[in-house]
């Protein structure tokens, strides 16, 4: 096993920030080139006139997932060393629901708003000011939400363990579901009136 490279000290820690900058450039370039710098293109997923978010997001997710499983299988990368967000049930669900409301009002998520800022969208810039304000509010009021934030902790749980499935079976099912969604999305796109933006 030689990867993940930095945790296994295959690359000196000093390179960390340079690598961050380069991977970020790839991330930003692909998001913008896919159209994520436009809030009205992003919102198309929820109204059915443009499913680019659904298609890009799930293609990226299953590509990375398959790659990780395969590299682990080949013995190139130790997947058990990868960081897993700890699962605090209430915080994960309530936080997600609040983010969804913010998504519907703002038309961006944090990453996509940065790509909007980069090409000159004022609405994206105002969204990032909102992000700053929201994070500040949460931090100042942390005491009130600490119970939810740290409530019902379930460790670094994996979704397939949670529902009692083998990793390989779950991954295969996820790919099938994603491809089925792509077909349905393309079919809906053809039925829904185009929106010009």
């Amino acid at each position: 096993m030689t990867a993940p490279l930095i945790p296994l000290e295959q690359i000196p820690e000093a390179w960390n920030n340079v690598i961050a900058l380069m991977l970020g450039m790839g991330f930003g370039f692909v998001l913008e080139s896919s159209g994520f710098s436009s809030s009205r293109k992003i919102m198309g997923t929820f109204f059915g006139y443009d499913f680019v978010v659904l298609k890009v997001f799930f293609t990226a997710g299953i590509t990375a997932m398959t790659g990780i499983i395969y590299l682990d299988y080949l013995g190139v990368m130790d997947a058990s060393m990868l960081y897993i967000n700890p699962y605090y049930v209430y915080a994960a669900i309530i936080g997600g629901l609040i983010m969804g409301a913010g998504f519907a009002l703002g038309g961006f998520c944090p990453g996509t708003s940065f790509t909007g800022v980069a090409i000159g969208k004022i609405d994206a810039l105002v969204f990032t000011i909102g992000l700053f304000a929201g994070i500040f509010l949460f931090s100042e009021a942390y005491g009130l939400f600490e119970g939810i934030f740290n409530g019902h902790f379930m460790g670094t749980s994996k979704i397939y363990e949670l529902i009692g499935m083998k990793e390989s079976v779950f991954a295969a099912l996820l790919i099938i579901v994603a491809v089925a969604m792509f077909f349905v999305a393309t079919w809906v796109e053809k039925k829904v009136d185009k929106v010009n933006y």
Partner: peptide
Amino acid sequence: ALIGGALFGFGAQLAR
């Protein structure tokens, strides 16, 4: 956009 950003930022802290 401002309110949406604030909600998103708040929710993202809660959900880590």
